[in-house]
Design a protein around this nucleic acid. Sequence first.
DNA 1: AATGCGGGGTA
DNA 2: TACCCAGCATT
Length: 383
Amino acid sequence: MKKQDDTVEQSKREYFAGRLVEWFRAHQRDLPWRRTKDPYKIWVSEIMLQQTRVETVIPYYERFMERFPTLEALAEAPEEDVLKLWEGLGYYSRARNLQAAVREVQSDYGGVVPDEPKDIAALKGVGPYTAGAILSIAYGKPEPAVDGNVMRVLSRFFLLRDDIAKPATRKHMERLLRTVIPQEAAGDFNQALMELGATICTPRSPHCLVCPVMEHCAGRLAGEEETLPLKTKAKPPRDERRLAALIRGRGEQAGRILIRRRPDTGLLAQMWELPHVLAPADLQPAVGDANASAAGWALCAALEEEGLPELAPSGIVTQADHIFSHIHWHMEVYLCSMAVIEGAALPDSYRWVTPDELEQLALPKIFHKLLSCQAFRSVLEPN
DNA sequence: AATGCGGGGTA
DNA sequence: TACCCAGCATT
């Protein structure tokens, strides 16, 4: 046992685990994935819950289980279907990794989710937290599952002033937890830690008066429950002005618009979008029609560089902002006309679609926002 | 160890 | 606004 863990007395660790498990069994929320021990369903729920709130996940989880009720069903599904069901949930590589890993379980483990730490941790998209969560909740194995909630709870209860943004801090907490996890109630204990963090030991204004372990909470006894955990600040997102093109079809493409699919890797991988480019750095901020025209021409020129036929802008349609964790997009949509449509060759990623066809494709939130605005819809009206 | 990767809820 | 959410992969 590591020396630093000895500073936490054994009796206090037993108190902590016992009270938490007892509290969880009496007060846990009734969540869809708590009504099963199916490792596949636990797995799906844990992937969806990564960096995502319970309330957000619930409807996605229900739809997903309806469409893919078994590991085999997910393994056999088209990748596009999985991405479409994930639409709006974010971090889309989770969906692709999940299906890749499920297919691996189907082929290498006969469709049975492995119960060995090294096997399950080797699956795509399954890191230290998710491996511990599946092993403890579905299989009852005494493995730690340290997420943001757990680090906050442990920081406060054991008065740990480590920076939780550092990977080393998570490892420290995993070592501590291995001395705390009750062997016969590992799943309930891990879920109790997270449940406490989500409902009582909240980031701000924790509800200490109803906390089951308040009496011996070192953070509260030190008056530091509001300032823990310590965490270095994240950098603000960088600003990007982006120019998008709304291009309407004519003739055989009448009633369709031109969209494209994003690359296989990176931001919003494999999702569909309006063609757009990063605004040239020397382009003046959009104020009034004159600058809008300059932006429109810059957009058309950039898209022609990418292999589209001759384009000309005819005005700005709408604009919207979207903030990712690391980028702030200011998106402006310009109506553009394409000189040649019939028989024109397009780059592979581009495609003409009707509004109905668009409904079937996975679209990021920002493009849903743009396409549903009134100005955009009025441009699409047949006339 | 640092960065890329969505979208939304909350005080 | 600022923070942060049942994190992981890549470099």
